[in-house]
Each structure stands twice: as C-alpha cells, then as structure tokens.
Design a protein around this nucleic acid. Structure first.
Length: 476
DNA sequence: ATGTAC
C-alpha cells in the first residue's frame, strides 16, 4: 500500500481521511512496514466499507489485514440500526465464528515430552480432521436445530464437557438470538455428520508450551506459567457456516437492490439490520456461531478423553474461547454516546478491555484473553484486551499472522512431506491426512506473526501476556 | 474456509 495516500496519526495508526462517499474515516492499525506490505486492495476495501450506511466511528483494519471477500480479512466495522445501519455477509466471512479455544493441562513441558508422540497420535485418532471429515455424532434435522440454538451448552448437556466450561466461552457458550429457522436445509444437511470435527485449511489442534511471559500479573490471572503445556483448538462452523454465507450472498444481493444500497464491490452486498432480510441473516449468523461453539466443545471433550488415557494425571481446563469471524450486538461509546451496535469482526478477534461485563469475573480486571495463532513452525501469542482498543476499535485485535502467499503459490513452492520433515528437525510433530494442506499452510506462506502481534501491542489494541511455541500439531 | 471447480 502506498504510504503517502495515508495520514500518519502515530507510528502504529494510519488514517484514510473520509473523502467522497466515505461516511467515516478508515483506520489502519499497523507498523509502517506492515502497511507498506499490505495489498492496495486493503485500502480499497476499507474505503468501500466506510461508505456503507449507518457505519459509525471508522472502518478499521488490523495489523494482519489482507484482501478478503468484500471486507478485508482483519476488518472491523460497527453499524447503528437506528441510523440505517446494515449487516453484511462479507463482514463476517464464510467460516462463521471460526476461533481459537485454549485449554490448560496442568502439565509442564518435562512432564509431557515422554508421552508427546503417543498423545498427539491418540488425539489424531479421535479428533476427526481434514476436508469432509465426519465425526461419530449423527444428527437428525431436529437435533441439528438444538445444536444451532444451544451451542456449547447443547454439547455440555449431551455430556461433552462440564457446565463450568461455559463460563469461559464468549456469551457463556451460546448466543440467545440464534435462529435455526433461518438456516437452509442444505446447510443443516451438510453439518449432520460434522459436529465435533476440526475441518481443513488453517484449522488445527496444537499442543504448545509457554515459552515466554511478558506480563507476570496478567499471566498469573490467566493461570499460566513458563513451561506450562496448553492445547489450542482452532476451527469454525465447517460446512454449515460456509453454506449460510453462500445462501445469504444471494439474499443480500437482492436486498441491496430492494433497499437501494449503493454497492461498490459485488461481495459487499448487505441488508438494513432492521429489514426482514437483515434480521434473517443475523439469526442465521447466530446459528453459525453456536455451531462453531458446539464444535469446539465436542473437540475439547474428545481431546480430554485422549489426554486422560495417555496421561492420567493431566487436567484439561478451559482457559478461554474466542471467535474471530462474527457479527454481534454490543454496547459501545462513540463520541460520548452509548450506542447499541452491530459489530462485524472478520478475521479479527474480540479483545475487550478491563471491566467489560462480558469478560469472566476471574479475568475482568485484566481484560479479555485473546489468542493469536501463528503457523505450524512459529509461535502463537496470548494477549489481553485494552481500554484503548475498546474505545478505538470496538474492542478488537488481530487474529493471526495473515497469509503472505496464496494457497496455490504455496503448493508450488513447498511439498508437504518436506515441510513436515523440516518441522520435525525443529522438534515439532505434525499429524495430517493432507500433504497438500500442509504445503498450503507452510510457515513461509504467512507473514511474521511476531511483527503482527508487536504491532497490535504497540498500537495499544491488546497487551502481550505470553508467547507459546508448538510441540505437536494435528493439521486439518 | 469449503462435499479443495455445481
């Protein structure tokens, strides 16, 4: 991106002044280097989003922003229904409520190393992973509606996990406004056998060790210490979320015409929040969110069973579960006014600062935990949200390293088996059913997660608490 | 991301 097209606010904040049809400015939170490396398309998309009806404060891009479908991936935008605000599938993404859940294990690195290979093999055996992977759970149409209405609470009620898990999931494990009736039969049918499966692409289950602590007070509040073993689960709403996106792209294209909303890019189609189409899509998004939360809950249960079989003294407990492809209603203060807003976060994780009532009471004074997943070979980060981020970015932070190379080019550059060998030489075990998937997800196909996270930290969006490194990983 | 190009 041409740096001279931007107004520098400070070293980690760049503004696109509100010109032409833009209703609000664009704000890009990133270092100069990351901004320069960003595709021009990000500027274009941030601008397009800034032109949408009812947007408030700013059209925002995170340090890991890259070109996406309508909205940039790493984009945040909030809309006021009372001011004609819209809801857009391009602002949520296809993998609705894709996110990261992290479990503590009560084990240290030394305790797990002798059993590591057996543990990852067991997890690989019991957690279905890969394209089209199916779980043991078979659901009927009525039962899938229960999943879509109940989320992780449905899973706990069915015996997958414990009621106390729910307090450490956003929204207590399920959103109440989910409306399974707004999800097509096809979307439901595609999910009948996929509840509790990891999926493919950048989804993974990783055994990690805490490598470095940056903020001792926050780490203590989160209950993590150097050398602790954590398990991170990154997955979303599988085929169901994808099908909701596909279905509503058609609905919202028609709605954009019906309500005369000027669309600057075809993928930015949307409907007024208060229109029947907008309400239907929002209800479907809620169902997608609950589907993803149920998935991660079932996978956690399978992981617990595997871990207890291999290492009986392990104790897998919820640290937190945070989604990074959502649209949710939240209260925010904009220009001194309290507003109820529809916040779109696409490839952007919620990162509420201290004091927000949505944060579990145990963490409320330090801010919401945020998980930033790196790549197979690199590290991941645990952060907490800040007041500044809550005021300036609706309480949002980046979600990962962000791709720097297309999947196609990655498969031409690397071979899956050599990537696995290289990682093995670094002491990282990979289990997968797809060498091609591993090539697509080669560490070299991603931006430097350290730089992205440092930018988020220095921009003030979230505060670094710990860095974790992978020991073993099941790739979808 | 995705029954990896209905």
């Amino acid at each position: 991106m041409e740096i001279k097209s931007l107004k520098k606010i400070n070293d980690f904040l760049w503004e696109l002044p509100p010109l032409g049809e833009m209703r609000v400015p664009g704000l890009i939170f990133a270092s100069q280097k990351l901004v320069e490396e960003m595709d021009e398309k990000v500027r274009e998309q941030v601008t397009n989003v800034a032109c949408l009806p009812g947007i408030v404060h700013a059209s925002i891009a995170m340090p890991d922003a890259h070109w996406g479908y309508g909205f940039p991936i790493g984009g945040v935008a909030a809309f006021d229904a009372e001011e004609g605000g819209i809801i857009s599938a391009g602002g949520v993404g296809f993998d609705i409520s894709c996110g990261v859940r992290t479990l503590t294990t009560g084990l240290t690195r030394d305790e797990i190393v002798p059993s590591l290979e057996r543990l990852i093999d067991k997890i690989f055996q019991v957690v279905p992973a890969g394209v089209g992977s199916e779980g043991k759970i078979r659901l009927t149409p009525a039962q899938i509606d229960d999943v879509l209405a109940g989320g992780a609470k449905w899973a706990v009620d069915k015996g997958y996990g414990f009621p106390e898990d729910l307090g450490y999931i956003e929204e207590g494990g399920y959103v109440t406004w989910a409306d399974p009736k707004q999800v097509s039969d096809l979307a439901k049918k595609r999910q009948f056998r996929e509840v509790g499966t990891l999926g493919s692409g950048n989804h993974y289950l990783e055994i990690q060790h805490v490598f470095e602590i940056y903020d001792a007070e926050a780490a203590e509040a989160l209950g993590i210490k150097k050398d602790d073993i954590l398990i991170a689960i990154h997955c979303g709403s599988r085929a169901l979320g994808h099908q909701i996106g596909t279905d509503y792209l058609v609905t919202l294209a028609q709605a954009s015409k019906k309500y005369n909303i000027p669309i600057r890019e075809r993928e930015l189609v949307c409907a007024p929040i208060n229109s029947p189409e907008g309400k239907r899509y929002f209800g479907a998004v809620g169902a997608g969110i609950n589907c993803a939360l149920a998935n991660r809950q079932v996978i956690s249960h399978l992981t617990r069973e595997a871990a207890y079989e291999i290492i009986p003294q392990a104790k897998l407990e919820m640290l937190f579960d945070v989604s990074h492809n959502t649209c949710k209603v939240e209260e925010h203060v904009v220009d001194g006014k309290k507003l109820r807003l529809y916040v779109h976060r696409k490839g952007s994780t919620r990162a509420f600062g201290p004091g927000r009532p949505e944060i579990p009471s145990r963490f409320r004074s330090i801010g919401q935990p945020v998980f930033i997943g790196g790549t197979m070979g690199t590290c991941s980060f645990i952060l907490v949200g800040t007041e500044f981020g809550t005021e300036q970015a609706f309480g949002s932070a980046c979600h990962g390293a962000g791709r720097s190379m297309s999947r196609k080019r990655a498969t031409k550059t690397w071979r899956g088996d050599t990537v696995i060998k290289d990682l093995s030489a670094k002491g990282i075990i990979i289990r997968t059913r797809s060498y091609r998937g591993v090539a697509e997800e080669a560490p070299g196909a991603y931006k430097d997660v350290v730089e992205v996270v440092n930018a988020a930290h220095q921009a003030g969006l979230a505060k670094k608490v710990a860095m974790v490194k992978p020991l073993a990983c099941v790739k979808g």
